[in-house]
């Protein structure tokens, strides 16, 4: 153990994990290439009981350099993945000899707004689908290609490309479809469930301590509007379920499987918590 981690250990033992340091998110507006994004919105009122009056984008909690990197689509390295995603969109795969474009044409037209409305009820599967599950359903049923494995590079880049077509459009999911409300409720229960040796729920950090510092991290509300998001730590795009699993792992609990019912319910609930915020994919975070 080096001196620094020892010092950190001593410091942590002597102080509460969440420091008293608090900083309001910045009062700035995000324009990506001059296009205004909605980074603050009144919390959704239906169903009632949203914990915040105003939902805020994680962008507001980041340092100036990180914010600037997202505001210029050229400087945003996540756009390299979006460009790769466009290539995947146009690549023929599978026995049916089709690409995404074979059925859906120009994504700029056909996918506009789609990413803002997911996760979405899928009647055939009897559960909500996110973009990744919808892509896999298209691949197996239409393209006769293999479903992507979780976090395959093509899956992340294609998802980012599709969601990027909704850049700026506010998140709004349809909770009236099918059984969405019961998934919402399950997701809500999961959000407040404490797990792991740290005994943290999602709400421990992103609701009760949103705005506080957890050591050097300025805790955001944990909204999903910027995923897949470019994280400086990984220097790559990170999918939402990857981050869900990372958060749960960090509570020292066994993370649920990606796209499991548990995490799909959580995705429905978290998407609702951030309704009204612009899709920022690919956002840039720490």
């Amino acid at each position: 153990m080096n001196k620094r981690t020892l010092a950190a250990l001593v410091l942590l033992c002597a102080s509460p994990l969440f420091t008293a340091a608090r900083a309001e998110p910045v009062a700035e507006t995000l324009e990506i290439d001059g296009e205004a994004m909605i980074t603050e919105a009144p919390a959704p009122k239906d169903p009632p009981g949203h914990p915040f009056d105003v939902v805020k984008s994680g962008w507001l909690y980041r340092e100036p350099d990180t914010r600037a990197m997202e505001a210029d689509s050229f400087e945003n390295p996540g756009m390299l993945n979006v460009e790769r995603g466009e290539e995947v969109w146009n690549t023929v795969e599978g026995e049916a000899g089709k690409s995404c474009a074979s059925c859906h044409g120009d994504a700029a037209k056909t996918m506009k707004g789609v990413g803002a409305s997911y996760p979405k009820w899928n009647a055939k599967a009897g559960k909500p689908f996110d973009i990744e599950l919808q892509i896999n359903a298209c691949r197996t049923a239409q393209m006769k290609a293999e479903a992507y494995k979780f976090d395959a590079r093509d899956q992340v880049d294609l998802t980012a490309y599709i969601k990027h077509q909704s850049l700026g459009i506010p998140v709004k999911i349809d909770l009236s479809a099918g059984d969405m409300m019961s998934w919402w409720q399950t997701g809500k229960d999961r959000y407040y469930l404490r797990t792991g040796q740290l005994n943290f729920a999602c709400a421990s950090c992103h609701e009760k301590n949103s705005g506080n510092y957890l050591r050097a991290d300025h805790l955001s509300q944990g909204n999903s509007n910027g995923f897949p998001t470019y994280r400086l730590k990984q220097s790559n795009l990170v999918s939402l379920h990857n981050r869900f699993r990372g958060c749960v792992r960090d509570t020292r609990a066994e993370p649920p499987k990606a796209f499991s019912d548990e995490l799909m319910a959580l995705e429905v609930y978290v998407a609702w918590r951030g309704e009204g915020l612009s899709v920022e994919t690919p956002a840039v975070r720490q």
């Binding site: 950190a8 250990l9 942590l12 033992c13 994990l17 020292r252």
Partner: peptide, 10 residues
């Protein structure tokens, strides 16, 4: 719990 968490972070 705090110590367990600290060990993780470390």
């Amino acid at each position: 719990r705090l110590l367990a968490g600290t060990a993780t972070l470390t």
